[in-house]
Simulated assay, not measured.
Amino acid sequence: MRLTIIGNSGSFPSPHSPASCYMVTATDDAGKTWRIVLDMGNGAFGVLQRHVDLKDVDAILISHLHPDHCIDLSGVHVAVKWDPRGWEKEPIPLYGPSTLHDYLRHTHGHYDEVGMSTEFNFHSWAHHEQVHIGPFTVTPFEVLHPTEEPYAMRIECTTAEGKTVLTYSGDTDYCRGIVEASQGADLLLCEAAYQEGRDDALRGIHLTGKRAGQVAEEAGVRNLLLTHLPVWTDPATALAEAQETFSGPTGIAEVSASYRVHPHPQPTNPPTTTLSVVQCH
């Protein structure tokens, strides 16, 4: 399984990155390569097209309905509906909170019953209810964030190489849901928008690097990759906080980097500050 970072900026795009968006890729036993996209925040759709043709995306998965995680779906809708060359495939499978279709219709003023159902095949998350997409099994977990139906995603992938598990936190503060979703994961892609000492009064919204590390340690994950860092949060500070509480390999998600997630530990034992997943630019 391979993870590509399309955007890692929190709350809004930074000068160097779109808001949250990630692509997960794997090849099944029949040789077909599957691509799923996690979130589609501000500016993400443009950068995503550097990495994949939209027609090769097998599904889009949305963690929650804040613009920095979903607003560029409006651009995807336009790309599918109005491409003068036509759209040869079925509507794109789109998974998210139950009100996702209504949310998107309001972005374009589509208030009829059809809405965007000709461009997207809408599916609603349900806590712990698994979804199967090619070699991927995705399980949503309710988490703690100030919006309706926020979810983390546990993505299990089974191929000829073995089974790998990637957990994506979405947006959340420390809660039972994110710890459960992360249990034994090979890689936890975790938000760390807040900073210890600066944001202590803000709870129930985001994690700090320290609390992200606590989640990773408690859940027994193999690798921790921090993301969703707004422009005012220093990556070095978030990394140092996480390393105080997580004893395993920890890093910062780099825009346009790809990380190959292996199903088993590598033969060598890397330093605790080096990810044991393989980074491939």
Rank of each mutant, 00 (worst) to 15 (best):
P150N: 06
A185F: 11
P140G: 10
H228N: 05
Y174I: 13
Y111Q: 12
S98D: 09
P18H: 12
I60W: 01
R211C: 09
V255N: 12
T250Y: 00
A192C: 10
E254G: 09
E129S: 14
L166Y: 09
T107I: 03
L104E: 01
Y174A: 15
Q214P: 11
T273Y: 15
H264I: 15
H101I: 03
D200A: 07
Y168K: 12
A216Q: 04
T118N: 15
K163C: 12
N223T: 01
E119P: 04
A192Y: 01
N42S: 13
R260H: 14
M153Q: 15
N42M: 15
C157P: 10
A201H: 10
V78Q: 12
Y95N: 00
Y194G: 07
G213H: 02
P230V: 03
T274K: 10
S182L: 08
T159N: 06
D28L: 08
V131H: 14
Q49F: 07
P270L: 07
I60H: 04
E191M: 09
E161W: 08
L54W: 01
G7E: 00
D199S: 05
Q243T: 02
T107N: 05
I5D: 02
W87R: 03
T118M: 12
W232I: 12
N121I: 05
K55R: 14
A126R: 14
I60S: 04
S258D: 10
H127V: 06
F122C: 00
G10P: 02
D186C: 14
L275C: 04
G43H: 04
E119W: 02
L65G: 03
T237Q: 09
C157Q: 12
T227Q: 06
I71Q: 00
E119A: 12
D200S: 03
T139A: 11
H106C: 12
D53R: 15
E113K: 06
E142F: 06
I133K: 05
H206R: 10
E191Y: 05
V80Q: 03
D186V: 08
C280S: 15
D53T: 13
A152M: 02
G209S: 05
A192N: 03
Q266L: 15
T118I: 10
H206Y: 15
T233Q: 06
V138R: 04
D68T: 02
T25N: 13
